[in-house]
Design a protein around this nucleic acid. Sequence first.
DNA 1: ATATAATAATTAGCCGGCTAAATAAAAGGA
DNA 2: TCCTTTTATTTAGCCGGCTAATTATTATAT
Lengths: 139, 139
Amino acid sequence: MCSTLGHLLVQIGKAHRNKGNQMLAAYNLHAGQEIFLQQVLCHNGIMLSDLTTNMEVTPVTVTRMADRLEKNGFLVKEKCCTDQRAVRVSLTEKGKEAAMNITEQTWNQLEQQMVEGLSTEEKIILKRLLMQVLENLKK
Amino acid sequence: MCSTLGHLLVQIGKAHRNKGNQMLAAYNLHAGQEIFLQQVLCHNGIMLSDLTTNMEVTPVTVTRMADRLEKNGFLVKEKCCTDQRAVRVSLTEKGKEAAMNITEQTWNQLEQQMVEGLSTEEKIILKRLLMQVLENLKK
DNA sequence: ATATAATAATTAGCCGGCTAAATAAAAGGA
DNA sequence: TCCTTTTATTTAGCCGGCTAATTATTATAT
């Protein structure tokens, strides 16, 4: 098991998402949505196209995430007044509260848990190596 | 961007899956299905419950993957004769051929690409650190 | 001014991943 | 033997991710 780097990364991806889901369940959110909310918290009224860029996902994914988050009362979508093609999103009170709590608590907690037992140096090395792997995969 | 380890892992996960999808497109397969086929290649007539264990996914996921792979002609499902609850899967000729080619070519190629530019020592360190991270996430 | 190209979103449809709940069959215990 | 628990699978439904194709609107070049 876990003999290859690929397999290892897949397992980590799953475990990471599962932990995230567990932690976000209290807010009725799923892993991935917290980044969306955080972006809107930092850039209120942000366009979907900019979210596409910032989150590095396709426009389709952003559209559907926005729809679901709106349906569940976390944010509001509205047409941009100066560009009729664009859609801007802004947080509701519920969304604002969730975003603020999550960013500080959940994410940091998960981040801490992952690197437990690693020295400061090892953390730096791990990040550096992973950034290299990401570069290689994007080629 | 990519400031946290979590974000980095998410990005790598996406990039890894996308590369896999690209490579497997020639076989009309998607990332994840190659592991399924490989398992059935090594253990012909394997039960779905064992695939659940080996692949470390839920029974639901295995059932649906098996259905899709069967629908697309890669394998066959049949009830176990000694245990009427269980379902055994075996590869068709098409599935066998795909599994053999993919395991050797695609997976190794992706594996190579990921660690390009890393020294032998760095590869070992990376694996060790990632295994620690996986352990931490499973707690 | 008009035709062409680029940009922003969307719909439909596919994939792997999950939980909850239901079904059916086998295994164990009183 | 009968009842209970465990095991194997499935159905329904939700999530993020993707591609392909479509619609609208803005920008650009002729």
